[in-house]
Design a binder for these strands. Structure first.
Length: 287
DNA sequence: ACCCAGGGTCGTC
DNA sequence: GACGACCCTGGG
């Protein structure tokens, strides 16, 4: 078992990071810790006082895997100061989710996960991804229990449309099937996308994939490619933006372009981060 | 029991 | 550009 301990890490609260809706493979344990599978590693996170304890198993270097995934070299205090000064809502939402960090998730996993997220709810999305990993992912043991890595494109391409349907994917089965093939055959080349500088060029490539529309593409850009300036608009964001800034009686009539423009004006190059604070705040406090 | 919404996208008009 | 259809599941 590998272990990595850090102290006095700024902007890091397990609940905020794992429950703010950016990731689907972390599960809270009865003792309050979180266990998740990322890339080639299974990791348990515990946090008390000023200390964070990571333990687990990994094929590659444990510390660098964690440093990269949790983006520990990025200082969020600066971001939060900037956003908090915009208005009272941002101030409030950041106070609520002060421990949020945007994770650096694997691009391929992110693509599949957010295709599954279409017209779906988070508990079901998590279950589907778990079943998919058990069926097609590699086993990794930790603490006497068995975990499963997210399947590679090669492994997932072995699944037929019907196999995917049986995992509970519903109408998303064909989308996953087609997208997996497109990525495997490099019709859309993920390595090339990661090297692109221009966000719009990245988005253009992602939109070629079956099941990837504007919202899913923006989530992939934000969570899989760390483009903090993109602003994914879903029902919750539409809701919170309308409640706070637009006050349209019919929330569904709120124009998407109008929202994009508003976000750009207000939040600028930190739109994606602002979205995450607002989304988390709204979702957790309106239930 | 029934209805509805859930981090939308796709095909069709 | 609008509009409905779409698998499935949990909660009212």
């Amino acid at each position: 078992m590998k272990k990595y301990i850090i102290k006095n890490q700024e902007s890091f609260k397990m609940e905020d990071i794992f429950d703010c809706g950016q990731c689907f493979r972390w599960n809270k344990q009865e003792d309050g810790s979180y266990v998740g599978v990322i890339k080639d590693a299974v990791i348990k996170v515990e946090q008390h006082n000023n200390q964070i304890v990571f333990s687990g198993e990994s094929d590659k270097d444990f510390e660098s895997t964690i440093n990269y995934y949790f983006d520990l070299n990025t200082n969020y205090s600066k971001y939060k100061d900037k956003l908090s000064n915009i208005d009272q809502y941002l101030f409030e939402s950041i106070k609520f989710g002060e421990g949020i960090r945007i994770l650096r998730q694997d691009l391929w996993e992110c693509i599949i996960s957010f295709i599954i997220s279409a017209n779906n709810n988070i508990p079901r999305i998590k279950k589907i991804i778990e079943r998919m990993s058990i069926a097609y992912g590699e086993k990794i043991k930790f603490n006497g229990a068995e975990y499963y890595k997210f399947p590679t494109p090669e492994a997932l391409s072995k699944a037929s449309v019907q196999d995917l349907r049986n995992l509970g994917l519903g109408f998303r089965d064909k989308r996953i099937y087609n997208t997996t093939k497109m990525i495997l055959e490099k019709e859309v080349d993920l390595e090339k996308i990661e090297k692109l500088e221009n966000t719009n060029l990245m988005r253009e490539e992602l939109l070629k994939l079956d099941g990837v529309g504007p919202k899913v593409a923006d989530c992939i850009l934000l969570f899989g490619l760390k483009r903090l300036d993109v602003f994914p608009i879903d029902v919750w964001v539409r809701r919170v933006m309308n409640d706070l800034y637009i006050h349209n009686e019919d929330e569904e009539k709120v124009n998407k372009k109008e929202l994009q423009k508003l976000a750009e004006e207000k939040f600028g190059d930190l739109s994606g981060l602002a979205q995450q604070y607002l989304f988390y705040w709204k979702r957790e406090t309106s239930a």
